[in-house]
Amino acid sequence: MKLLLIEDELELLQEMQHYLEKENYLCETAHTFREADEKIHMYPYDIAIVDITLPGGSGLELIEMLKKAHPETGIIIVSAKNSLHDKLSGLETGADDYLTKPFHLSELNARVKSLLRRRKFQGAKTVCFNELEVKLEDNSVLVHGSKLVLTKKEYELLLYFIANKNRLLTRESIAEHLWGDNIDFVNNFDFIYTHINNLRKKIRQTGGVDYIRTVYGMGYKFTDQ
């Protein structure tokens, strides 16, 4: 999988690159409009992550060019401006997703995975992790072939975990993933604890292995190592 990361903040760009390279993606970076422009025309990419505000031009223009040169490329906008107008014009230009800064890398990773699935496999596919099988078409989960009944949030949580397996997921990022960033939870993450406990219980009851590790004070890790 080949990704193009377009972001003018070098520090942020590096971190994004490191995080995504660990997922075994081939990451190319560009931190100015011109550099991005060159790379877009040189190679095809599976996914491009585009910052809207760039020195030398607008990310929206890049998206237009990308759509012309390689219409099959999936596009995720990353913007510091949390404005509906930008979001709508971005999605109208042909972007597939929109992420507002500051975002969690785990969230970006989950979005990249979800977009890849939609792009590469025409949307119909299952996500597997050992004995766990998530059927994306009908949002159902199978453990050893038997059905696991989850609530909507538990289902989203499981998918998020699988997308970010072997990584620490902070409670903040889980809260934002499940509830969006408009919500103010008074830094009270009890409800996440409850969600996770319910998920664990259900997986175990259906005969699966509980892969969720609690990382004290920080969050959770979904791992079989």
Binding site: E9, E11, A80, P102, L105, T170
Partner: peptide, 11 residues
């Protein structure tokens, strides 16, 4: 964003 991302890596 940078602070958050760096701290996440650190974590």
């Amino acid at each position: 964003s940078i602070m958050r991302v760096k701290l996440e890596s650190l974590l």
